[in-house]
Computed example of a mutant assay.
Amino acid sequence: MRTDVTFPSGGLTLAGHLYTPDGVDGVDAAVGPAVVVGHPGSGVKEQAAGLYARRLADRGFIALAFDAAYQGESAGEPRGLEDPGQRVEDLKAAVSFLTTRNEVDPERIGVLGICASGGYTLSAAATDHRIRAVGTVSAVDISRQFRLGADGSQDPAVFQGMLDAAAQARSAEARGEGVQRFGLFPATEEEARQAGPHVFEGWDYYCAPRARHPRSAKALTWSSVDRIAGFDAFVRVGLIAPRPLMMIVGREAVTSWMSVHAFQHARGPKELVWIDGAVHVDLYDKDEYVTPAVARLTDFFRSHLTPAREDDRLASAV
Results as ranks from 00 to 15, higher is better:
residue 1 M to I: 09
residue 3 T to K: 04
residue 8 P to F: 03
residue 15 A to T: 15
residue 15 A to Q: 06
residue 23 G to E: 01
residue 37 V to Y: 10
residue 38 G to M: 06
residue 41 G to T: 14
residue 42 S to N: 02
residue 44 V to R: 11
residue 44 V to Q: 11
residue 51 L to S: 07
residue 52 Y to N: 07
residue 60 G to A: 03
residue 62 I to L: 00
residue 62 I to N: 08
residue 69 A to V: 07
residue 76 G to I: 01
residue 78 P to V: 03
residue 82 E to F: 15
residue 85 G to W: 15
residue 86 Q to H: 13
residue 89 E to T: 11
residue 90 D to L: 13
residue 92 K to E: 15
residue 93 A to S: 13
residue 96 S to F: 05
residue 97 F to K: 07
residue 98 L to F: 00
residue 100 T to Y: 03
residue 102 N to P: 10
residue 110 G to W: 06
residue 113 G to D: 12
residue 117 S to W: 15
residue 121 T to Q: 10
residue 123 S to N: 12
residue 124 A to S: 00
residue 125 A to G: 10
residue 128 D to L: 02
residue 128 D to M: 08
residue 135 G to C: 07
residue 139 A to W: 05
residue 143 S to I: 12
residue 144 R to M: 11
residue 147 R to C: 00
residue 152 G to L: 05
residue 157 A to Y: 02
residue 164 D to I: 09
residue 169 A to F: 09
residue 172 A to V: 01
residue 173 E to R: 13
residue 175 R to M: 08
residue 177 E to W: 01
residue 180 Q to A: 06
residue 185 F to C: 13
residue 189 E to S: 11
residue 190 E to I: 00
residue 196 G to K: 07
residue 200 F to W: 15
residue 204 D to V: 06
residue 207 C to A: 10
residue 211 A to V: 12
residue 212 R to I: 06
residue 216 S to V: 11
residue 216 S to F: 05
residue 218 K to E: 15
residue 223 S to P: 02
residue 224 S to T: 11
residue 225 V to Y: 03
residue 225 V to Q: 05
residue 230 G to F: 13
residue 231 F to I: 15
residue 234 F to W: 01
residue 241 A to L: 12
residue 248 I to K: 05
residue 250 G to D: 07
residue 251 R to L: 04
residue 256 S to D: 04
residue 269 P to H: 10
residue 283 L to Q: 00
residue 283 L to T: 09
residue 290 V to I: 08
residue 292 P to F: 15
residue 293 A to Y: 06
residue 297 L to V: 00
residue 300 F to M: 11
residue 304 H to I: 10
residue 308 A to C: 11
residue 309 R to G: 15
residue 314 L to N: 15
